[in-house]
Amino acid sequence: MGILFVPTLFTFLWMTVFGNTAIDAIMHHGATYLADAVNSDVSIALFKFFEHMPMGTFLSTIAVCLVATFFVTSSDSGSLVIDNLTSGGDNDAPVWQRIFWALMQGLVASVLLLAGGLQALQTAAIASALPFLVVMLFMCFGLFKALQDDWLKINSVQQHNTSVQYAKTNMTWEDRLDVLVSRPTHQDAQTFIDHVATPALSRVCQVFMAKGIVADLVYLDGRVRLVIASDEQTSFAYGLRIRAFSLSTDTEATDETEEAYYRVEVFLEHGGQYYDVMGYTEEQIIADVVTQYERYLHYLHLSSAEYITEGN
């Protein structure tokens, strides 16, 4: 936050001190010469302003020195930046390049002053800024996309919930790794849904029914879905769907059939969860359903339960 507000406040203070004092002098102390000076030549205003202060000449001398030094530092940093831009981001460019740009800046400033004075300078700056203004809009967009991606990366690491199930059941890490490095085809995914996931969900469904909770198993178009409907509250649903992806590194079209891989992703009542259960055992799928059901109950508890009293 400091980057935006500290310099701004300093600038405000500066403008208040110089501007308000000057306006005050014109309004209340009849310093019309200051108004005249500003109207005739802007660059003299500061020195006329010091005239009505004690030690005016001394202050003006300091001001001239300050401007001259600012000139040197501006030229210096300007040539550094331009050199950096024209040498591909190289920070240790040879000295002659920077000198070249420092001289070039002096030359441009001189020519513009001779050709049209203040107005030429302003026009050149305004016109040359336009293309970069447009570029900057794209830079903002690029930054936004990159930040979004970064945020996803950070959060997907923390919230990726499949590792829980791996730890919960007996499965060697070699087997788990085997699943992770394989690239399932659509056929693999469908076989998995039909022969592992559906039986697993069917077992869970039966247990729910045995406990008097009305659960329903829906199998449609290669998708399977366990639903516990509720009229008063949000229903619980645990569905599995096959989703196809391709890892494209750039925007150029890649050979889709070869690059495509399939995931069996979990879909809850409120939508897809972006994690893959392909390769789980029946036990693991059941563990995942139970985990999600537990979260669902926790959500119900947080959103609608009411605290009655301590103990009984």
Binding site: A63, V67, L121, F132
Partner: peptide, 23 residues
């Protein structure tokens, strides 16, 4: 970016020198 910087800096150099001259 080079053009923007060049003319931006040249402009402030121009302002600077006008003021040094007046001073």
């Amino acid at each position: 970016a080079v053009l923007g910087t060049m003319f931006g800096v040249a402009t402030s150099l121009g302002f600077g020198v006008l003021q040094v001259n007046s001073g």
